[in-house]
Design a protein around this nucleic acid. Structure first.
Lengths: 335, 335
DNA sequence: TTGTATGCGTTATCAG
DNA sequence: CTGATAACGCATACAA
């Protein structure tokens, strides 16, 4: 690939002058400018971003860490981030961490090696102290899925406990008393928080939640199916199922349907997240809204604001918590 | 952030020696090596990827161009690419082109500026001659969604015409004669090809396909719904609907259900792509499999092979065409 | 085994 | 308005 020198030679000027028309920051005579532009086009010259990064000490890049690209939830998140980044002329570098602390750290380090100025990370596995350390080292570091008091101003997070409450409240107020919960196998705090919320709510309603009524599975369609099977195997009787996410809920519905149950007439099912799928499936999923698009947008703007030279009005906000709310559709009804 | 000089100073050696332990290509005495590693850890030193790229003239990066990250189909594709890239220690740079020729070109140029060595691009809007030109300029350039004779060895593509045939054949052989087609509003050749395949098949079966039985909509759930409405408005009578993709198919099912139709008893619906959603929804979608995961893997390996220094056995393959096949599930049945 | 010097492709400073 | 020149952070050829 042609370099700036090649262009300079072809146009009969110095590299410096070529650089000037590239950045169009200094006035260059129209004639030479035209000559240079012609040379650029002729050679199909593309300024080397690495050389630029090196000398300008800035990359205009925002790094994103998520567990997996294939998950619709994360794809949505990455997409939202890219949208606001694009507006600010920032490149996006996506790295996946797959629920593994080592891999998450590797992903972040790789992003650091690329000298990302900002970083939006969804960390499922890294301990808080590591994240705190990272946040203090990286100017544009923002967490998008958890709250850590010491770096609260860098946390955009979702109230998972509240989310668990919302779904349990709904089902309880609908008159259900035999309630099963389907959670994820992955040992991640989201699941624990949601379960805690469910417990709190059910406790308020004085509805028991026995351990055997809590089943686990992979956080997808198949996991939902498997969890239902284990529930049935244990002889559990239930008229409502609260699921860790929407994908599991669709699996649950499928498995229950196979068992001859009507949804929601025989069994009510509630999902979590409100991904696109929830609206598509039949019956449409009653679920808890996780406003990941808004949150991702906020996180990106926040990260970018940290590295912006024009320091605007100092934020008074302590942290950025987003609240869940119920989206009532068709999969849950009165007992 | 600390540089190699800082590390060298702290360890009391020259930058060159630090570089040597980093690349571990030359033997360094255990003692100094230990000292250097201690310094690296102490300073939290992360080699600057840009400086490395500059001097080594290699970035170990593969660029990906897709229209939008949020689409499950593309998310799946990006994910597959990342998986094989990761194994080869390649970074992935994703850029979105959103069905717009200008934006697609910008995305590719940006990737070039980053000096991506390989590139897997899904181009919906760029004219063939531009793509040919690009392919000749960029060593690791691979197209993942179309066939262009002049650069056939860089084309990993799907037989969309065959896909259209497969779905129409299925429905026709099931005894349907009143068939509606729902296509996308976007003027992209995929849609045309699929439609051509449908026409060919129906022609063989001597089943007419009137223009008014072809409706268009955005390629998503809402577009599917809207298309059904316009079909009904026109007074079309049909017992089967062939859809441009799975998302539209779910919209179609939803709209028809609202109209009091039973799927598949009253109307059969066939999707396209076989994204995750197709298995999740109810009834489960009968659809045409688009093996995007395998194709993405292939495309990545191909792109990487083009830039690999150890030139293996010269490929005899002319191009990489993937064939559609029907996935029979629940949404289509006999007339 | 280690250090010195040079260059990768740009931008920025300083003369002219 | 334009041209040298230095510097960005690192890897490597060449010396020692």
């Amino acid at each position: 690939m042609a370099t700036i020198k090649d262009v300079a030679k072809l146009a009969g000027v110095s590299p410096a002058t070529v650089s000037r028309v590239l950045s169009s920051t200094v006035v260059v005579s129209p004639k030479t400018k035209a000559r240079i532009e012609k040379a650029i086009a002729e050679l199909d010259f593309r300024p080397n971003a690495h050389a630029r990064a090196l000398v300008s000490k800035s990359t205009h890049t925002i790094g994103v860490v998520i567990s997996q690209l294939a998950d619709p939830f994360f794809a949505q998140m990455a997409s939202s981030i890219e949208n606001v980044a694009k507006k600010r002329k920032f490149k996006v570098l996506v790295s996946t961490g797959s629920l593994d602390a080592q891999k998450e750290l590797t992903a972040i380090k790789s992003l650091q090696a690329q000298r990302c100025e900002a970083m939006v990370v969804n960390s499922k596995a890294l301990p808080d102290d590591v994240l705190i350390d990272l946040a203090q080292r990286i100017p544009g570091f923002v967490l998008i899925n958890k709250f850590i008091p010491q770096i609260s101003e860098r946390c955009v997070w979702f109230d998972n406990v509240g989310g668990g409450k919302v779904m349990a409240d709904h089902i309880a107020s609908l008159g259900h008393t035999q309630i099963a919960v389907i959670s994820t196998k992955d040992r991640i705090y989201d699941a624990t928080h949601r379960l805690n919320g469910i417990r709190e709510s059910l406790n308020d309603y004085q509805i028991p939640l026995l351990d055997e009524y809590i089943a686990h599975g992979t956080p997808d369609y198949d996991g939902g199916r498997a969890a239902v099977e284990s529930l049935v195997l244990r002889g559990c009787q239930f008229s409502a199922v609260l699921c860790y996410n929407d994908a599991m809920a669709t699996g649950v519905i499928s498995a229950l349907t196979d068992l001859g149950k009507k949804i929601p007439d025989d069994v009510s099912v509630v999902g979590f997240d409100d991904v696109l799928l929830a609206k598509y499936c039949m019956p449409k999923l009653t679920t808890v809204k996780y406003p990941i698009d808004i949150m991702a947008r906020k996180a990106t703007e926040l990260a970018l604001s940290f590295i912006s030279k024009d320091q605007p009005v100092k934020q008074v906000v302590k942290d950025y918590q987003y609240k869940p709310f119920l989206v009532k559709r068709e999969s849950a009804t009165k007992y």
